[in-house]
Every structure is written in C-alpha cells, then in structure tokens.
C-alpha cells in the first residue's frame, strides 16, 4: 500500500484500508441506487415495472416514456407533457440568475472597497434574509403580486427569486473581493478612475471563479425551487418542479411509473449537467464563501 505515501501523517494498514474502501463503496452504492434504478426503469415498458423486478435490466428498451414525459403526458388538465414547463423554468431562471449575480457583484464591490458607516450591519440584514423560512413572507407576497398584477407571471417569480438570492450572491462576491488588493483600486482612483470604471477594468476581469459559483448556486436553487412556484405561478409560468409534482401525484388512471421517472430525470438534467461540468469549481468556491478557515 504505497499509496499512503510519506507526505501524510496519518498512515493506515492493509486491513484498515480494505475496510475504508468497503465502506466508501457501500455509500457510493447508497447514493447511486435510487437515481440509478429510476434511470434504468425509465426505459422499460410499464408491464416490466409493475410485473417485474426494479433492479432487473430492461428486456425491451424503449424511449417511449421519455417522449411521453416530454411531449404528451397529462399535466393537470392538459396533455402537453413537461416541455412547456421546462421552458417556463428556463425563462424564469435565466433572468433571475443574471440579475441576482450582477447585483451581488456590485454589492460585494461596494461592501468591501467603498465601505461606509454601518455597512456590516446592512450586510447582516441582507444575509439574514436568505435564511428566513419563506413561509413568513408567503401571505404578503401573494397579496403584493396580486395587487401589482404580477401574480402568476414569470416576472413575478423572477422578482421573488432575485430578492431571496441577493444575500447569497452578495456574500460570495463580498468574501471574494475582500482579499483583492485594495492598493490597486486606490492607485486607479488617484489616476482618476471612477466607481464603475474601477469595477469594470480591475475587479470584473478577475471575477471569473466567483461568477461561476454564484451562477451555479443561483441556478440550482432557483431551478429546484418548489414552494414559490407552487404558491405564485399559474399555468403559463409554472416551473418544471411544480409540473413534475403534478405529473407524479396525479391520481387518475394507471400510474405510468416509467413516464414519471423519465420526467423526474428531465427535471434533474439541467442541474446535474451543471454539476458534472462545473461542480469542482462550485465546491471550491462554496468553501471559500461559507466556511471560514
């Protein structure tokens, strides 16, 4: 076991290592199983699921459930499949992520490089806003959206998601800009550069990693949100999670398990892809953002 090389202090023997691998593999199985089984069963015909073994591989491979989930399945009263809701989610997520990230970047810049009296207190208030149980704002939010004509619209959902994402995006950018050398900014200021020019020319070019973190975090949270979608959206703006829940919970007719699974995977796909592509940066950035030391 030369892997336990000399540069680590903690050394482990052969038996211990076998045990470690065993436990790690068992947990890998635990994490893979429910989703993996769902994936396998989404390409089986329905009889094979209801009559057969969920852990068995499909005898007949079919993409029909995927097609149905996307295009023809009954969601609520309409046989539209999930695809309109997929686009609803996209129309909601893209502006909400963009706006909250831009505002977060500007806020982080102000709170680290243009500090003023009580700025930490203001930041504390912004940060606490992310942690409140959303039930506390549901009633007035529903009233406000109704009165302003935003109820049931994508714009209303974008507004809600921007508000409750701001604290997190501000936190990420604040922590990131905190360690950025202030001398550079001071020098630029003496050269006559203004607030926005300094941001655009000096901070923004080196903000790549933290933009990735903010975008992934916001994208995952907003795409996966259910409570606000269920409370404030109507048919034209319902996001994917709400539609999926309607599909899965519908009590009429035979339960089309394979279609449900295909739908669930469709709903999970965008965030999964983001994780697979950029997850590494996310975890690294998140650690810098939320865990000190």
């Amino acid at each position: 076991m030369s892997v336990a090389s000399s540069d680590t202090a903690v050394r482990t023997g052969r038996i211990t290592r076998t045990f470690l691998y065993l436990v790690l593999l068992l947990f890998a199985l635990f994490y893979l199983l429910p989703f993996g089984v769902m994936l396998v069963n989404s390409v089986k015909p329905l009889e094979e699921i209801t009559g057969g073994n969920m852990l068995a591989l499909p005898q007949t491979l079919t993409l029909q459930p995927w097609f149905e989930a996307w295009a023809t399945a009954q969601i609520g009263v309409e046989p539209t499949g999930l695809h309109p809701y997929f686009w609803n989610s996209i129309k909601m997520v893209v502006p909400a992520v963009a706006i909250s990230t831009i505002l977060g970047a500007l806020n982080g810049y102000v709170l680290t490089k243009w500090r003023f009296k009580y700025d930490t207190l203001i930041f504390g208030f912004m940060l606490f806003a992310c942690f409140i149980p959303f039930q506390i704002v549901l009633i007035p939010m529903a009233r406000m959206l109704g009165l302003s004509g935003l109820a049931g619209s994508t714009a209303g959902l974008v507004l809600v998601h921007v508000i409750f994402g701001l604290g997190f995006t501000t936190l990420y950018f604040k922590n990131y800009y905190q360690v950025f050398p202030t001398e550079l900014i001071r020098a630029a200021q003496i050269d006559g550069a203004g607030f926005f020019r300094i941001f655009q020319r000096i901070l923004l070019p080196s903000s790549g990693p933290i933009i990735v973190v903010s975008v992934i975090w916001q994208f995952t949270n907003i795409w996966n949100d259910f409570l606000f979608g269920a409370s404030f959206a109507d048919l034209d703006s319902q996001p994917m999670t709400v539609a999926l829940n309607n599909l899965v919970q519908s009590s009429t007719g035979v339960k089309q398990y394979n279609v449900h699974f295909a739908g669930a995977i469709l709903a999970a796909l965008p965030t999964l892809i983001v994780y697979i592509v950029a997850g590494r940066y996310f975890v690294r950035g998140l650690m810098a953002g939320s865990v000190k030391g």
Binding site: V3, A4, S5, T8, V10, T12, R17, L20, Y21, L24, F27, A28, Y31, L32, P34, F35, V37, M38, T220, W223, N224, F226, T241, L244, N245, V248, H260, F261, A264, I265, A267, A268, T271, L272, V274, Y275, I276, G279, V283
Partner: peptide, 28 residues
C-alpha cells in the same frame, strides 16, 4: 482523506444528490 484511489470518482457520486430538486428526490 486517506489518499483513496478513485477519490475523484467517488466525490461526485457522494455529492450529486445535492444538485437534485427535493421533488425529484421524493419521486425516486
């Protein structure tokens, strides 16, 4: 953290459920 072979494979497997919506998790 014990210099495990295949850490880069295991880590995303442990982590991916976090990317899912609770609705998807619930369905599964």
């Amino acid at each position: 953290d014990q210099k495990i072979r295949g850490e880069s494979v295991l880590r995303p497997i442990f982590l991916y459920p976090m990317a899912l919506s609770f609705i998807v998790t619930g369905t599964a």
